[in-house]
Each structure stands twice: as structure tokens, then as C-alpha cells.
Amino acid sequence: MSATLRVLQKDLLIEWRSRSRTVALLSFAYTILLIFAFAVGPDSAALKLHAGAYLWLGLLLSSTLLLDRTMRIEFEAGAMEKLMLVPVPATGIFYGKAVANLIQLCIVGAFSVPLVFIVCDATMVEPFGWLAATVFLGAAGLAAPGTMYSAMIARLSGKQLLLPLMLFPLVVPVIVAAVKATSLTMLGDPMNQIGSWLTLLACFNLVYWSLCGVLFGRVVEA
């Protein structure tokens, strides 16, 4: 646990020192959301109906930039080898980095939600807590496998192309569940389905976070 916290502190310090890149990440997410809104046009009903999907596509595409960077800082100057020789346990490295990515994805989500409400003319029908839980669980479902895959491909050429190719198929269930839950919070949930979708998201997270934590050591040692 202490190794996880120390890696988390390190990653957050690096992100704080290079916060211009965080601003660039937010700008990228905003640009994607605006492009979706402009592409659909002034059809308010269609925008409102698909607001959840736009939010999660924006988050998914932004996550590739974030996740690519998370391992680049470890491998570009050999810092990962230094971490292994400290030695920091591989599980500590994984969970520290994955939590740092989760926090940053939640920040991107928190800044993206108001824009989605504005450009899609969306409203909250269900309590806001459901949407916050969806953003958190959906971001967690992207952060764990994304951290794992970015480590797997960090030393390969063409990694910026490989990451989405490998990550996107794996997180399809997460995106589907997150879009459903988000849409229900915005459009209303007469059948009380939000809880089921969030449970599904929690189950995916349980599998991803435990499996990736176990496999990460093999990946970095290889």
C-alpha cells in the first residue's frame, strides 16, 4: 500500500509540474465534444438523446493520450528500470499509476460533463450522484486496462496506434455500460436500471483491477 501511495504521489507531482499537458488534454476532450455536437447539427432531440455517448467517446479518445503518456514518462529515460531497482514492487507501480490515471480521467470527466450539458442541451433527471458514480466507475474501467496495455507496448514502435487498437475492444463493455447509465441519468430511469448498469461496471472493474495488478509484474519484467 505504501509503495502504491508513493508511486501515486510521484505521478501526481509529475502531472502537476507539467500541467500544461493536462490543459492540452482537457482542450482535446472539449474539441472532440464540440466536433460531435457540430456534426449532429442543431437537432436538439438527437443531441440530448446521445449526450451520454458523446461524453464517453470524448473520454475514451482523451484517455488514449493520457495513457500513452503515463508509461512514456517511465520508459523514455529509463526511469522504470530505476523503479525496479529501488525496488518498488510491480503491483505498487501498477496500482499507483492506475489510480493516478483514474484521478486524471475523473478530472477530465468532471470538466467535460458541464460542456455536454451545454452543447447537447441535456438535463439531469435522476440524482447527480448516479452520474458521478458512473463517471468514476467508467473512468476506472478505462484506467486499469489502459495502464496495463500502455506498459505492454511502451517499448514498441508505433505504440500510439497500438494502444487504441488493443484497448478499445477490451473496454467495449465498459463504454456500453457507462453510456447506458449516463443516458438513464439524463433521460430518466423509469425501470430503475441504473443500479444494474453500475453493478455491471463495478464487476468489470473488479476483474480488470485484480487481473491487471497480477499481470503487470510479468509485463514490466519482460
Binding site: 510521484k10 509540474r17 529515460a77 526511469a79 530505476k82
Partner: peptide, 8 residues
């Protein structure tokens, strides 16, 4: 490789 963090 020096094994350092470039942003720090």
C-alpha cells in the same frame, strides 16, 4: 539512459 523524470 539516466533513469530520471524529465519534467521534474
Amino acid at each position: 539512459d539516466p533513469g530520471i523524470y524529465e519534467d521534474l
